[in-house]
Design a protein around this nucleic acid. Sequence first.
DNA 1: GTGTAATTGTACAATAATGCAAATACAGTA
DNA 2: TACTGTATTTGCATTATTGTACAATTACAC
Lengths: 112, 112
Amino acid sequence: MPADKDRFEKRAEIIKAMANAARLMIVEELSRNEKTVTALTELVNLDISTVSRHLLILRHAGIVACERNGNQILYRLRTPCVLNFFDCVEKILNGESNTTDTCSDNSCRECN
Amino acid sequence: MPADKDRFEKRAEIIKAMANAARLMIVEELSRNEKTVTALTELVNLDISTVSRHLLILRHAGIVACERNGNQILYRLRTPCVLNFFDCVEKILNGESNTTDTCSDNSCRECN
DNA sequence: GTGTAATTGTACAATAATGCAAATACAGTA
DNA sequence: TACTGTATTTGCATTATTGTACAATTACAC
């Protein structure tokens, strides 16, 4: 199923853009307010060039948008639905799952 | 903010587990029914060892669980809420965003 | 034991993250 | 206009992480 595979590649591309701690911090920050690159750089504590690249990744994925404001560029969250990811993620982190991993309990090697 | 950063690292860890086309196919397939490693291997068309590793990643993230059934191991979706990711992703792929990227329209270089 | 299913060891190729230095964009001012 | 300063992006180089397959190993049923 080659066409199908392509569909999943596209989906993965967007999820990949969210699959990084610095970018998650940026997204959450932008959910509160639009921010400049410099402001976001202070937040995540990385080189400004790195932050600029993170923003490019988010922009290419369609997750953020930007707008020039004189000397600086303001970034804002374009698709706030990505914040919904966090609900599920927190659920998983808190171990709130329907079912248990019985495989871990008996036979699987390398089970956590 | 070091403790805060750690929180985002943990979140990113889970989203990373979803950030791969083969694993997304596996997750969607498991949302329909539990499956063996061999069955999933046919689905994604990769070496079985690779699929086994993909499943390990999903299991470590808490997204799938497994259970031994005689000779084989059955994997199932443990936290179906990850399927909600797809809603938002499809929205982005269809360009259904609140706002536009005005930065693309005028001044930014490398704007898509 | 033999056969089937799944995992792990190893190696390799491809991607991603990062910082430094240089370049570009724009505002203000001489 | 040209010069300066601030904000952002891009060109490189480097390191870290991820995806992959093949071979060997382990688990289990018969």
